[in-house]
Design a protein around this nucleic acid. Structure first.
Lengths: 186, 186
DNA sequence: ACCTGAACACCGTTCAAGT
DNA sequence: ACCTGAACACCGTTCAAGT
């Protein structure tokens, strides 16, 4: 990449991070280009779709989430691992407003820049869920897609001012539904 | 209302019902006015905000939901009543795409044309929940706002093509979490 | 009273013209 | 190679001018 191109790319990304943090995933691309002091065409050259731009903004955090899945699996009991990771996954959806809708759309679109990352998150969750199920600690009538749906639904609640205050408590309620109480040791 | 005004009002409403059913709550008002063969200003005269228009489209169904709450309460056991009504409430959010976001926004805005109706739904749910709780059939650490949040979250899942297939099953999973198993009679 | 549509301030997206 | 911004086709919202 040419030096001037690289500079524009970085500038757009930096400004986009700010604007998206303020206004969410549907922030005006025109506004981002303007604040980045870059032609609108330049933004489109580097990021052919809105999702391509947001994908870069999310990549670091998503990679971290995957890394943490491995860590947690290695260090926690199956039930605790499932819950801890699920909590992190919900927290990830609060990177900025609209992440959850973005994920839902990406899951349904093979061509989305975010499709692979979202599938990875689902796979990580499925693995932790299966581990808890095998240990007899999680109910067996749900799968990775169900888990991701629940995480997304809880993430959506957090995006709504009127429902957000309930999200943390409802996470616990739903967690209760997923886990099977461990019988007390004698 | 003058006869010509009434005719325009009805025409806009009829067309809006169609267009919103097809495209969801964020359908183009311009498009609705065009298809209704009415000036854009006429649409705004009769429905000063988008919510005012959607409120009329939802009123019938919402009133029905309230009526059914009373029926169900009168005829069903407390736990069955809670579940049956909750299922209807989720179904209501599928009147058209975007109802759930509309409700979330309306709950947070006293001035919304939908605020009163949404509060009513929450109150109906709260009543049925309390009845089940008093009968020892529902867990006591949730309230009407929690129930509405769960209903909205399940409604949101149904709006997402990638998550919708899970919604029915997840309703049952969450229902399990809300209800307390009735002890078998001896 | 009511209707109309132009006017204004925004979008997203594309692409010819420039360096 | 890369950048620019005008151009196009859309929005929502308001309001002067008409009947």
């Amino acid at each position: 990449m040419r030096a001037d191109a690289k500079k524009n790319y970085d500038q757009v990304l930096a400004v986009a991070a700010e604007v998206v943090a303020e206004q969410g995933a549907d922030a005006s691309l025109r506004d981002i280009a303007r604040r980045a002091e870059v032609g609108l065409g330049t933004l489109y050259r580097h990021f052919p779709t809105r999702e391509a731009l947001l994908e870069v903004l999310l990549r670091t955090t998503m990679d971290e989430l995957t890394r943490k899945a491995t860590d947690i699996e290695a260090t926690c009991a199956p039930d605790e691992a499932l819950l801890t990771w699920s909590r992190l996954a919900v927290a990830f959806t609060h990177t900025f407003r609209g992440v959850v809708d973005l994920m839902a759309t990406a899951m349904d679109d093979e061509n989305s820049a975010l499709h692979a990352s979202c599938t990875k998150v689902r796979a990580d969750g499925a693995r932790l869920l299966l581990r808890a199920q095998d240990a007899g600690l999680a109910r067996k009538d749900i799968d990775g897609a169900d888990l991701l749906s629940l995480i997304a639904a809880l993430g959506w609640l957090n995006d709504q001012p009127s429902f957000a205050p309930r999200a943390a408590h409802l996470f616990d309620v739903i967690a209760d539904a997923l886990l099977i109480a461990k019988p007390h040791s004698p």
